[in-house]
């Protein structure tokens, strides 16, 4: 079977098309989606929060060093909140969910494919895409925006720990400048980025797992490809989304 990059893109497109068709026709399991969403949220909560915290702390730390040169320490919290909420929180949430839940989706579906469970489902005339794939994609699309907001909060808190806790800036000064450059639009845009990444990671993970071949190695390869492709496309689309959302087209 030939598999150049263009052919893979085509196959991915067909797979996403099949998922959309199943979704529109109503042949998919809503309860299944809620269950996947709650497992993903529970399993990714800790990784997302404990990585967002040191990230915010590092920005607080290095940002103080930059602003030190201009004795403009009071601006640190607005710099921190803009950078964390617009840029870092969606990417951290997406990368961690891709690593934790995306790879486990690929592993689950890959193991089902290897053990011919997916074939068994379709033999019983239950559409495996509507039953196994669409709920997983939907779960990602629900959970990543929520975790994005959470990561934003923890990132800012990590920055607060360094700026107020270690460097001794008064709490009032920090809070006064926190929302200075931030609007509701930024929060919405941040959650929207999370939604796009959710759909992206969900479809990539399910596609790779659904089409795994070649025994245990195949499952390992599917998991590996899922993580690499998801992280890569998250960063690429992050550039496009940032240019689109924050360059003044929508405000």
């Amino acid at each position: 079977m030939s598999s150049g990059p263009l052919i893979s893109v085509g196959r991915y497109g067909l797979f996403v098309g099949a998922a959309i068709r199943a979704c529109l026709a109503g042949r998919w399991a809503f309860r299944e989606m809620l269950e996947h969403a709650s497992t993903v949220a529970l399993r990714c909560f800790l990784p997302v929060t404990i990585t967002a915290l040191p990230f915010g702390a590092v920005i607080g730390f290095q940002g103080m060093a930059i602003l030190d040169l201009f004795s403009a320490h009071r601006l640190i919290s607005s710099l921190l909140s803009v950078f964390v909420i617009r840029e870092l929180a969606p990417v951290i949430a997406a990368v961690l969910v891709a690593a934790q839940a995306g790879s486990s989706f690929a592993a689950e579906l890959g193991a089902m494919r290897i053990k011919e469970e997916l074939d068994a489902t379709s033999v019983m005339s239950v559409d495996p895409i509507g039953w196994h794939v669409v709920p997983r994609i939907g779960a990602m699309a629900i959970v990543i925006p929520a975790l994005t907001i959470l990561a934003g909060a923890f990132g800012v808190f990590g920055g607060w720990l360094v700026v107020v806790g270690l460097e001794g800036q008064p709490h009032g000064v920090f809070m006064a400048h926190l929302a200075q450059d931030l609007t509701t639009f930024d929060l919405g845009a941040s959650a929207f980025k999370g939604l796009v990444y959710g759909v992206l990671i969900g479809t990539i993970a399910c596609w790779k797992g659904f089409n795994a071949t070649g025994g245990a190695e195949g499952v390992g390869r599917a998991v590996n490809d899922t993580v690499v492709l998801s992280v890569m496309f998250v960063l690429v689309s992050n550039y496009l989304l940032s240019s689109l959302l924050f360059s003044g087209v929508f405000r």
Partner: peptide
């Protein structure tokens, strides 16, 4: 087994990401 391979890979990548990001903070400090 295939499930073991999948879950080992999954756990490894999560732990690596978390440890690298946390260590990055300490290394910066």
């Amino acid at each position: 087994g295939p499930i073991g391979v999948g879950s080992a890979t999954n756990k490894a990548v999560v732990v690596m990401c978390i440890v690298c990001i946390t260590l990055n903070f300490f290394l910066t400090t």
